[in-house]
Design a protein around this nucleic acid. Structure first.
Lengths: 229, 229
DNA sequence: TTCCTTTCGTGGTAATGACAACATATCTTC
DNA sequence: GAAGATATGTTGTCATTACCACGAAAGGAA
């Protein structure tokens, strides 16, 4: 447990590392390792704890009976996951949380967060406040993922995702946290069809890509407009 | 302003109506009416207030340049909206909030919620705590909307949405808050194609529907399985 | 009632993308 | 470096669905 590291996460932002150390016991801190490919949580799990990625990466995904995988998001070091289900005790999880790299995860017991304890740690309120921020941001991320998949064409979805990512990274060159299959699962399209479309877009001079590094070639990416109206 | 009504909303649950009345000023309560079809918030708006639907209904939607509308959700009386953006001061809204009925909305200033004021209203913390719940639930709703659109076929999407809704309403007969066009925009499909598929499913004996009332005819709706595996 | 608006179902056509099958490339591990 | 595994690009076929256009039905207002 590294209070300094935690102080830089959204959940503990603004809290003194010393206080974090003090909270460790009364918030029920617990750590565990997960090898690449293993599940932290599975669909149907209830009464889960908040997860904080200390190292590695955890992917939130859904796998239906047809074998279709939907990636809702991916969270890296410092990121928080499962907080929504942790806060809704009776809601069984509808998704899996899977380590996509060897990962170490810190768990926090929400009930202990909410149940303000008497003496030393008057910091509970700060954590709860931060929890609102974390949850709100996650909300916005989910909305983005919805908008990224709202176009009915693969190209439209790529444009939505890549142009926002470029904006976020403040550059026309960007790297994404996904390989092709993951990107396809995030955008809700077939992988080979995605490769095909990427090829077309290269030929059309819209972008370049090698592995997970993309370069937006043309401002037209954003301006790709409908025929008339 | 009806404290009794508010005490039954998620945001003010567990708070004494008297205390709610007392908070009215220090939380910056403000009410406004919106005729059917008018916008409460528009894409790009920043520094918005939390909205609570007192009467009517507000729909969260996105309209892109191609004229494609995506419905992220719809919130009825007692429901809360825009809380995520309210909690992320610099995030411009990516969606519109539109009144789909004549509606009355109560606004709450988040900054005043967070900035605990000195004397009488020690209830701020309760509201913040409730805010976590509200946000978490919204999170789960958004995840559901993502899963509802994860199938690549219209039928799959309908099954996902309807079977959950039936489960929620605890009956094989259910009414949905959408007309056909809205349902299509929620599921991310074409309206006429949706009508067509509904017709097929009726013929297949899976369901019946008249207007916004649906009846699940067969348990197969949930069991509709892949060929083999 | 009648007129007008909105909602909903149907048909046909074209296009998009899913799916499968394969080739190439890249990475890992020994 | 060789060999296996994994990731990516390519091709072709077929099913699904978007899109357009229309008519029927339902709802509202005068």
């Amino acid at each position: 447990m590294d209070p300094q590291f935690l102080a830089n996460t959204l959940l503990f932002r603004g809290i003194d590392p010393e206080d974090i150390r003090a909270m460790a016991s009364c918030l029920g801190f617990r750590e565990a390792d997960y090898p690449r490919g293993s599940a932290v949580y599975l669909t149907g799990d209830t009464d889960v704890d908040i997860g904080i990625v200390l190292s590695g990466a955890v992917q939130i995904e859904s796998n239906d009976l047809w074998g279709t995988k939907s990636i809702l998001g991916i969270v890296g070091p410092g990121g928080v996951f499962a907080e929504s289900y942790a806060c809704c005790p009776n809601e069984p999880m509808m998704v899996d949380a899977v380590a996509v790299k060897n990962s170490r995860v810190l768990f926090v017991d929400v009930r202990k967060v909410f149940h303000t304890c008497p003496a030393p740690c008057g910091r509970h309120t700060d954590v709860i406040r931060n929890l609102v921020t974390v949850s709100s941001r996650k909300n916005i991320r989910l909305s983005q993922r919805i908008l990224d998949t709202s176009s009915k064409t693969i190209r439209g979805r790529l444009i939505s995702y890549l142009s926002r990512e470029a904006h976020l990274q403040g550059s026309r060159e960007l790297s994404i946290p996904f390989d092709r299959q993951q990107l396809a699962d995030y955008l809700g399209v077939d992988r080979s069809a995605l490769s095909k479309e990427l090829g077309k877009m290269k030929r059309d001079g819209l972008l370049d890509c090698r592995k997970n590094r993309f370069t937006i070639r043309s401002a037209d990416l954003q301006l790709e407009l409908p025929p008339d109206r």
